[in-house]
Design a protein around this nucleic acid. Sequence first.
DNA 1: TTTT
DNA 2: TTTT
Lengths: 163, 163, 163, 163
Amino acid sequence: MSGSVNKVILVGNLGRDPESRTFQTGGKMVTLSLATSERWKDRTSGEQRERTEWHRVVIMSEGLVTVAERYLRKGSKVYLEGQLRTRKWQDQAGQDCYATEVVLGGFNASLVLLDKAQGGPGRNDYSGYGDTPGAGGGGDAGSGPEAAADAGARDDLDDDVPF
Amino acid sequence: MSGSVNKVILVGNLGRDPESRTFQTGGKMVTLSLATSERWKDRTSGEQRERTEWHRVVIMSEGLVTVAERYLRKGSKVYLEGQLRTRKWQDQAGQDCYATEVVLGGFNASLVLLDKAQGGPGRNDYSGYGDTPGAGGGGDAGSGPEAAADAGARDDLDDDVPF
Amino acid sequence: MSGSVNKVILVGNLGRDPESRTFQTGGKMVTLSLATSERWKDRTSGEQRERTEWHRVVIMSEGLVTVAERYLRKGSKVYLEGQLRTRKWQDQAGQDCYATEVVLGGFNASLVLLDKAQGGPGRNDYSGYGDTPGAGGGGDAGSGPEAAADAGARDDLDDDVPF
Amino acid sequence: MSGSVNKVILVGNLGRDPESRTFQTGGKMVTLSLATSERWKDRTSGEQRERTEWHRVVIMSEGLVTVAERYLRKGSKVYLEGQLRTRKWQDQAGQDCYATEVVLGGFNASLVLLDKAQGGPGRNDYSGYGDTPGAGGGGDAGSGPEAAADAGARDDLDDDVPF
DNA sequence: TTTT
DNA sequence: TTTT
């Protein structure tokens, strides 16, 4: 289909440190476990309720992989933008199973750190890596996030699906 | 967690007619099967490739349920905005399975029809139902989308998960 | 036109404290001055460059007005979602002038505080006010953000346009 | 500031054909005049009201410039994603004037055609140019949108601001 | 005018 | 598993 958009925007905290994997082809990917939550007052009981959602995030862009490895930690708060992707596989009983991930790869992927002070680098001029240059002032599209992993390599990760 | 955002924006076409279900409690929900796709040139082979992603969309907001039932059909193109929600259940083999849906319910859900002429109403002044009023000119927040279904009712739908 | 979307998403810091105004009709609005900035390496010179953008944000939703007054201060970091609106007026020389604002009013407006500790309330269960309930668990759409100000009242603010 | 996001998402129709300009430096930019509108029922009078908003859109990305020139026409419906940028200048009376544009340049800019049949190319495999590859299947970031124009060149366009 |  |  032409003319489609597939976009996810999340702001939340990491439930654990990022996990890196290297492909045989040299590429790298990082997975995050990101929590978002919402609160509301129950309509009938009037009590506070809360629901936490856990998102599996897969970072494929070379630039964003670097940012994630360097600056993200368990507890980090981030803004991110990616795409939905659902993978399907058969469990031992031959049943179809599905896992949906938020993939940051290629264009229109962003990762912005929202923590005050990460204790890491002097200044975190890395953040917003995927959302930066802009053409309005001599921008430079050359150093941004790039699709890194390739399809063949990706496939052999199918078995670690249930996050 | 305070301070989180969970947002999905999709533009795509319906793979089949919307499906409605009524809860014992009187509420209603509609599910959509929405396709988005992307094309790119393969880096190595140079050939055109295409990948289609299917999204399970669940509409809970009363207003948006009405819009969906009335104006959406197989093939309709829509813009929609909702939240990610993953449900977990056990298959017969006792394995954990997951299904992620895009839920349109409560605030910040939108459904905007993008087809030229739906053949339905004289003018499609329904579209953008969830994205409209605005306060900038005597807006009216009273007739908008509202959370409809309740959790217990939702549970008995678990068996139709693999979309 | 049917079928349109007008959405702005910003993450940035307040340049000064929020400013409140009360309408004769009793409604209230709050304006924010929000900075976003981006950095990039100049393509030719190779030097770091930075560009800061200032956004005039107008909050009309009753609920979000309350949140802004209570918890936002100069320096606060926020995620917000609103709509673009351009107002036009004549300056003394009879020239057309324009001012574009990001308006948070009606549906699909959000304000999420991103600061670690605001020093205010025990817990900041206010944040995400406009992005919360969700229908997936007995949600309640009744207490959310609502369009507050009315058009007539708004008009007499036209003179403070150049922000 | 690190950690900021400046994003605009619009779906609307072009009020006139795209306008192209070439810089002395060889770069190109295209401007669009895009309408979004919303309808609501007036709270007091109960009558239908409508408000149309016109957005000035500036496309700087090389790839998106090409797409815009080739496939967009007056009346075209598009989804686009860009950034807010406000420019300031003095009118003849020495008054400060401002113009805010939605800029599509650099990363995270998208332009997706939503018309059924543009009468142009066999299939519109151009659309979604800025939102496509994705790393999940042998993606290719090399042919995407790039920042094109430079700042000096941009400046001599200041006089056509009031759109 | 913010932030790093 | 995060966060408040």
